[in-house]
Write a protein that binds this DNA or RNA. Structure first.
Lengths: 201, 201
DNA sequence: GTCTATAAATTGATAGAC
DNA sequence: GTCTATCAATTTATAGAC
């Protein structure tokens, strides 16, 4: 056998954590090796280069997280239900993977093009969501709001708390990680109420 | 004279741009020198080390941006006016300095403690804002909402679009930088309406 | 004050033994 | 498959001439 699947997994796991915490430029191959309990040479045996390793990880992240989001878009329900489902499942994904939003945010800065391409090739189609909003406006269910503004509102309210987690935790909640988790659990269930109240006619 | 103030400024300017674009770990002293039109040795003559340079810049960023925010908190106006003024001036600051939110976000990941200390020592007191919200709830002006959730809502809606600028621009607006600027100008004037509608009784 | 040259340390990657 | 040793390139920082 050419590869030890267990070692391969250990490396991928360690690398994921390192990249999530420190970003691409902040991560050291030595750091990944230490975390995986192996040495640098073995890293290069399993994964050709730092960049190759990174690309595998970011692809994997999107393979996991994007489909859950897309499926909600495409369901044939009314706008309010879509918003409820989207916010709830979106926040839930990141409660279980709290470092991913920061990871993605760092990648936005380092390589915006790659990220945009990745999302687009993942099959995310914002137009479906836009059309649902436009329809709701036309039918008089919600106030006259730009679909773009509303979408940005929804995503901002879900994602930003994770990106600014230390600030939210220490400065606003004046607490610890447990407090943040409680805060986000509550948010998961309540944020759609805030949004819908803000657009309902 | 020991320092050429003009050169000193040129360096600081170049370094600010480099750090904002590439983050601490992505920035090279050579890159700063190139941008400033001088050489590396002179960088170290004016600023002891990369880290020292970075600290000066991030301190300066906060000295500029924090007071404008704090002042709005402390004004003795009702909650709705506070929200209107805060969102408008907050977004306006970042329209003029669009890379700062990403810069700060990166620093959140690299050194959360330093950032929290910096903000606290800048005199930001969230309690004043919290109390204003609690009072508005008690007096029946707004629905029963957690002050923490509302504050996070407000900040998220203002800041996140800047952090995710490339995604917003290309994926949601399907446009360019000009479109993003228009989008944020509109947002600056309208976002408080959305927030207030979401909490008003 | 500003430059060239170079030291000193770090880091991604490879060679080769076992 | 996994390791030690080492290379080659990069990068921060300093020494010293002008």
């Amino acid at each position: 056998m050419k590869y030890n699947i267990d070692t391969s997994e250990k490396i991928l796991n360690a690398a994921t954590h390192e990249f999530e915490e420190k970003g691409y430029n902040g991560t050291r191959m030595q750091g990944i090796a230490n975390r995986a309990g192996i040495n640098k040479a073995l890293l290069h045996y399993y994964y050709k280069s730092k960049d190759a390793l990174f690309q595998i990880i970011i692809h994997k992240a999107f393979k996991v997280f994007i489909p859950q989001i897309v499926s909600v878009f495409e369901e044939d329900t009314d706008l309010f239900t879509t918003i409820e489902k989207f916010t709830s499942s979106y926040i839930d994904v990141y409660i279980k993977n709290p470092r991913v939003p920061s990871f993605i945010t760092q990648e936005i800065n380092n390589n915006p093009e790659r990220l945009v391409n990745l999302i687009q090739s993942s099959g995310v189609n914002v137009e479906i969501f836009k059309n649902k909003i436009i329809k709701a406006v036309k039918e008089g269910q919600i106030i006259d709001i730009d679909p773009e503004q509303l979408i940005v509102n929804i995503v901002s309210l879900c994602l930003f708390p994770f990106v600014a987690k230390p600030i939210v935790t220490k400065l606003i909640l004046r607490g610890n990680d447990k407090d943040f988790d409680r805060f986000m659990e509550k948010r998961k269930n309540e944020i759609s109420t805030f949004i819908i109240k803000g657009i309902r006619k």
